[in-house]
């Protein structure tokens, strides 16, 4: 039991990210409203981005912008002084793509509402079977 507890204390961050991701996945599957589903998708996305960014974190390291002391000629930059820029850079792209998909999803929702006057999934199914 104490093993499990120490494991949770050591890695509580990862556990909370997994919980966040579960919330997003539940929203995507179980919610009936299309916009709620999109919100669930966004929560899922941000949870994964959070996980990636947290991998790049290093204890006692600075933000990934070089200090003036390190820009002097002949100074060797130590990699342990700065957090990992690679994960930040990859996730920057992910956020950009997420806003593009979000805007497009909203446009789709508006279009669906124009045609069927509803955003609820079960009502949409009913309208579609009537046609």
């Amino acid at each position: 039991m104490s093993d499990v507890l120490s494991l949770i204390i050591a890695k509580y961050n990862y556990w909370l990210y997994v919980i966040l991701m579960m919330i997003g996945l539940y929203g995507m599957i179980a919610k009936n409203n299309l916009i709620k589903k999109v919100v669930g998708m966004n929560i899922f996305q941000t949870a994964i981005i959070l996980f990636y960014v947290s991998i790049g974190y290093k204890t006692n390291a600075s933000i990934p912008i070089i200090t003036t002391a390190d820009t002097a000629h002949g100074v060797v930059v130590r990699a342990a002084d700065y957090i990992n820029p690679l994960t930040s850079c990859l996730m920057l792209t992910a956020i950009v793509v997420s806003v593009a998909t979000f805007g497009y999803a909203m446009a789709l929702a508006v279009r669906i509402y124009q045609r069927y006057q509803t955003l609820e999934e079960d009502e949409l199914r009913m309208r579609l079977s009537e046609e």
Binding site: G56, Y57, K58, I66, Y82, L86, T87
Partner: peptide, 28 residues
């Protein structure tokens, strides 16, 4: 799966070993 993850804030975690060190040391 989290039991296999590297420790929190570990500078030696696999993600910050190979290419990212090159980026930090050589970018400027």
């Amino acid at each position: 799966g989290t039991t296999e993850f590297p420790d929190w804030g570990d500078p030696k975690s696999p993600a910050s070993l190979h290419v990212s060190n090159y980026y930090i040391e050589k970018t400027y």
